[in-house]
């Protein structure tokens, strides 16, 4: 208020505070007192919501179409018969590479892959989304054609941007997917996986990793 009700002043005050800037990395002394983080001594890891997971997958694989606005796209094949039937798409192309916020929301027909991530149906107001963890989410993310395709795209991007050596590819993969350099042990295991099973296998694993799906 003394700053003339300036919102910018308020933001600066919040963003430069010690509380805001403290690391969310766990500290042993705090863990000893409050491992469940009841007193919010750090921001607990939280899973991305459905739309953000899909957008992040497309962004990391390099296939996202960032065009804002305009008509939406379908995640279902629409069969117009006596009545309308909606079948989840199995084949995805550039038309479906836009952010999920532009996907046409069909009431009662959730997206076949990301709907399972507590994506509300749209027929009822949901003031706060649930965050639940289910085996169907794991199956969708690990086994869907869409995710396998995106893993191939990510592998191609890694080869394109990091060149032919596995070490550089692994480093680039970590940078893109989880914004850090790999630990030596991680880099070793990743290079071994690439050598045995190919780069798309590493890409598929990273797009399923908790560190990719969770903030921080």
């Amino acid at each position: 208020m003394p700053a003339g009700w300036s919102i910018k002043h308020l933001h600066r005050l919040i963003l430069t505070s010690a509380t805001w800037r403290q690391s969310s990395a766990p500290r042993p002394e705090a863990l000893a007192v409050d491992a469940g983080c009841r007193w919010l001594w750090r921001f607990p890891p939280r899973r991305l919501e459905a739309e953000a997971i899909r957008d992040s997958v497309l962004a990391v694989s390099g296939t996202i179409d960032p065009t804002p606005g305009g008509p939406g796209f379908f995640l279902h094949r629409v069969e117009r018969e006596n009545v309308y039937h909606y079948h989840p798409l199995e084949d995805f192309g550039p038309a479906e590479a836009r952010r999920m916020v532009y996907a046409v929301k069909i009431r009662l027909e959730p997206d076949g892959i990301f709907g399972a991530f507590d994506c509300p149906d749209g027929s009822l107001a949901i003031p706060r989304r649930n965050v639940s963890t289910t085996p169907l989410q794991a199956l969708n993310l690990f086994n869907s054609r869409f995710m396998a395709d995106q893993a191939v795209h990510l592998a191609a991007r890694l080869a394109r941007e990091a060149g032919p050596t596995a070490d550089a590819q692994v480093r680039r993969a970590w940078q893109l997917a989880i914004h850090r350099a790999p630990e030596p042990a991680e880099a070793r295991e990743a290079a071994a996986l690439v050598a045995a099973e190919g780069l798309p296998a590493l890409a598929r694993a990273l797009l399923n990793a908790n560190e990719f799906l969770f903030i921080p």
């Binding site: 690990f142 630990e183 042990a185 991680e186 295991e189 990743a190 996986l193 045995a196 099973e197 296998a201 590493l202 598929r204 694993a205 990273l206 399923n208 990793a209 908790n210 560190e211």
Partner: peptide, 13 residues
């Protein structure tokens, strides 16, 4: 192999 690698990654995380 991919699943094993993923679970190792998640366990370390």
């Amino acid at each position: 192999a991919t699943r094993d690698f993923l679970q190792g990654l998640n366990a370390r995380h």
